[in-house]
Design a protein around this nucleic acid. Structure first.
Lengths: 329, 329
DNA sequence: TAGTTATATGGAATCGATTCCACAAACAAA
DNA sequence: TTTGTTTGTGGAATCGATTCCATATAACTA
């Protein structure tokens, strides 16, 4: 490994001067500058970011904590983040909790030990130890998708989005609307989207049978099974179903088709998330486009504001969603 | 920021001793050890990885260069990589070239400046400057998806996979098989998959009309347009089409359906990549499952071997693929 | 011409860890 | 008792950069 010391020797100057050339600051004569640059080019010298950041306290690295790699949501988020950060010369250090809550705290410490300039946290479940750990960190910090008080957030209006879909169904004449959700520990996807559904139904006094409201997990099979439960156990068969993710909706569609029913004539279906799948299943799926990429952009902006000491008062940014009407309703 | 020096003072020992406790090596009396650990716990001290790696020359960070974030291929690859690396205490530093070739060299240098312990490169086009830059790096290195001589590779047999699909079509009685590829600069997806198609056709002397062989880019629309070209311009209409990616295949399917033709009765379709889409489009798409996740696992293993100075002779590892027969053929 | 100021460079401290080496005490073997 | 070994601890150098401060000219200004 070639170091600044060697460059200094070869160019017969001090390390100080080489550093000045490198960072283009302080006084350096044209002559010396040329000489140093020549040696740098000849040797292929690349300064150690590591040594640099030990001194400057800046790493130009952003830590990102994801609940799962390899989901459309995560990869779109990362795309948005990278778009902003790369432009500003930041790299992304990726960590993946695989939905194990203890890993979140472990990775927060790890990122701190690596002196990242900021952290983006995407999580599904928030608990007290996590919130405490975060507040102790003293590192620029933004969460996405979930609200944590006193911390910068980028969010959707999950409640209203869910309500909008139910209202759309109601407008189209559906009255017996079932619901496939996830565990309410996940406040955004589990709790708020369910609340939106319940309130929309309540507002015009549509009755809900108990078995219409199912709880699944984040995959296609779970949507299939939930739909089966709904169809099999309900006295009044529903004429529509809202699922809180596209995958669940697609599972539900599979069951409906297998049961020899038609979509949307017998049962209409809506999902949420605007996954790529939703465009290409048949019938194409009505869904909500949450634009995770934009969340990434916004979150990156918020974090950069904190890093650069601007706008630290702003805490919450809501990203608009878009209802995509297709043929499943 | 609390440092080792402060811990040393508070525990009335030297920094050396604190370091010994931290790394659990050298002689330390039980008494002193307890005292130091107590102070560490009280203060919430987290050692600086940065300072550590300046001295030890190990960062426990792996650089990953992707051609595009937010594709199923990339995210599955990263998932496989992370699975292995996280277990061994490595983190992933992500960079994204967005298919801009110069970015690859830029990021190679950047990763070197950050002293990553190893690099995984996923690229689509290989050129000479890139190969030269890599060989100068002297960092453990593995490429995936594309073969570069003298460098460790994890690959698929793209040629044979393509041939298998064509042979399957032939076995099922299709004779007029069209092809939608991509630019041959991409040796694996563009060149080899096309060669597999051409050779399979040649081996049993099936003629190919010029306009049956189209070149698209990596998206759905491009598959749609290519298929239109094929159908509109061919004298003998093809009864099957092989696309080198699922997206292209799905685009082709869209056109075929719009043209009022049936899949697979009028035209059979095959894709490659086993995207999630392929399962859920209708009819479901026959495709090749390349298992990018396994590529990630293998690539991570190979890289760790290099980092730990094992098995440096092994260069190429081929990952098996699996033909998934569905209803589109 | 003396006194400032701008320009140019280097010495040495610093960042926060690890690690080599020296040294002392405790213990065992001769 | 002497010698050798194990155990326990700290001083100081080191990693590769940045940066404060000192110093020396050169170039203005009064």
């Amino acid at each position: 490994m070639i170091t600044i010391k060697e460059i200094a020797e070869r160019a017969s100057v001090s390390r100080t001067t080489v550093s000045r050339v490198l960072n283009n600051n302080g006084y350096v004569s044209e002559d010396v500058k040329k000489r140093v640059l020549k040696v740098i080019k000849e040797t292929g010298y690349i300064p150690s970011e590591n040594a640099k950041s030990l001194r400057t306290k800046k790493t130009k690295v952003i830590g990102v904590i994801l609940p799962k790699i390899s989901t459309e949501t995560s990869s779109r988020l990362v795309k948005g983040l990278d778009e902003v950060f790369a432009k500003e010369g930041y790299q992304i250090l990726l960590t993946n909790t695989n939905l194990v809550p203890e890993k979140e705290i472990e990775y927060l410490r790890l990122l701190k030990s690596r002196h990242v300039d900021g952290i983006i946290l995407s999580t599904t479940i928030i608990n007290q130890p996590l919130v405490e750990e975060i507040s102790q960190l003293k590192i620029p910090f933004v969460t996405v998708g979930q609200q944590i008080s006193k911390i910068s957030n980028v969010l959707f209006d999950d409640y209203q989005a869910s309500k909008d879909l139910v209202n759309l169904m109601i407008k189209k004449g559906y009255k017996h609307i079932a619901f496939i959700g996830v565990h309410e520990e996940d406040r955004s996807v589990g709790y708020l989207r369910k609340a939106g559904y319940l309130d929309a139904m309540k507002e015009i006094n549509l009755p809900i049978e108990d078995c219409w409201v199912q709880q699944g997990i984040f995959d296609v099979d779970s949507g299939y099974h939930s739909m089966r439960e709904i169809v099999k156990n309900s006295k009044q068969k529903p004429d529509a179903v809202l699922a809180v993710t596209d995958r669940l909706a697609i599972g539900a569609m599979q069951y409906i088709k297998e049961a020899g029913l038609s979509i949307p004539d017998d049962i209409a279906v809506a999902g949420m998330g605007a996954s790529e799948l939703s465009r290409f299943v048949s019938p194409s799926l009505t869904t909500i486009d949450f634009s995770m990429e934009e969340v990434g952009l916004e979150a990156a902006d918020l974090l950069l504001d904190q890093i650069n000491g601007r706008n630290t008062h702003e805490k919450i940014r809501k990203v608009e969603y878009r209802l995509i009407e297709r043929s499943s309703i």
